[in-house]
Design a protein around this nucleic acid. Sequence first.
DNA 1: TGGTTGTTTGACTGGTCAGTCAATCATCCA
DNA 2: TGGATGATTGACTGACCAGTCAAACAACCA
Lengths: 198, 198
Amino acid sequence: MARASVEAERKEQILAAACEVVSEIGFKSLRIADVAKRAGTSTGTVHYYFDTKRDLMHAAFDWNFTQSLGRRREILESDAPATQRLRDFVESYLPEGAATVGAWHVWAELWVEALHDPDLQELNERVYGEWRRAVAAIIRDGQDAGEFREGDPVVFANGLIGMIDGLSLQVLLGSRSMTADRMRAVCEQVLGWFFLAP
Amino acid sequence: MARASVEAERKEQILAAACEVVSEIGFKSLRIADVAKRAGTSTGTVHYYFDTKRDLMHAAFDWNFTQSLGRRREILESDAPATQRLRDFVESYLPEGAATVGAWHVWAELWVEALHDPDLQELNERVYGEWRRAVAAIIRDGQDAGEFREGDPVVFANGLIGMIDGLSLQVLLGSRSMTADRMRAVCEQVLGWFFLAP
DNA sequence: TGGTTGTTTGACTGGTCAGTCAATCATCCA
DNA sequence: TGGATGATTGACTGACCAGTCAAACAACCA
């Protein structure tokens, strides 16, 4: 066993580095040596903590999600009105800041890798379950408070999350027709249709 | 120059094979030898028509789009009511049949590859422009015919296409919470909110 | 028929990189 | 202090594969 403190710290360093490299050059181009360099260590050390490249990437994908969830905990657990929480949630997803864009890149790589990897599909399933439940809970709150029109919260959560994913991809691809600002406008429009006028 | 007939036929064979292989094992795992075998030819011949792997894949991505558009031409150019055309369009996108699922896989690979390739971003831009225009045109028709509520057609087209992309990804990932049937239900629900009752 | 151009083949090469390993260093504790 | 265990290093190896190339084959035409 690695000594607990060193192990946790070093793994974190390596996972953060792996996510940065994936975000910058993509999974396909990622070399263990790139990760090692970015983490300020050697390939030997990377392999000391992660047996294979696959293990490393699975752990990195998982870590990426944990970090994303952490960055949104404040929003999800806030006791602001549901309309506000939903707006904040959507806003926090817009691919604008470096952290969010980086996390989105890693997500996109995960998706495509998962197309041919059942273990990653399982990770996706777990994570999307969490997002879906979180959004559906906000919607239910909003409906209970009369801020939100009726309808199946899960259907709306699925539609909203799906739309965010699809639009974000276009933004990440640098589309001239779908900038972060335009995405914000589309999301606001859609939310507006579902919020009841105050 | 290759003799026109042979060249066109052989290129088509190779591109179709490339798309099949990408769909089955992913871009990252694709070997020129796989494509050659699938096309019933040799690696030498693949390289005779496509200088590099990158050239081959760019052409394959382009070809995949042309085929997808062809499969939908009938719907887009039909003179059925706008509501029907939009329903048919969405239905045609559901990742169910082999051809559609295959095309989606190739799309997903294109997206991720494009994150780090400006030429592919350009292809994405062109293609999305076409989809967006096609959908917006249907919506405009529907609004003119009073079948559809008012609002910016482009905003709605963007929202709808984004949602389809995001949901399709989850279906492709084999999510137990997002099957093709559930996706159909979400899309119908959303379309229902925007169609005016007859 | 024989020459020209277009097409096909697969063995081969050069470069790349994940993963291994033996050596070294650091930390802890008896 | 010295031995044990944990941690780190980077040179090395074996597998892999894109792209090359020389040789062969096919279609066409003069």
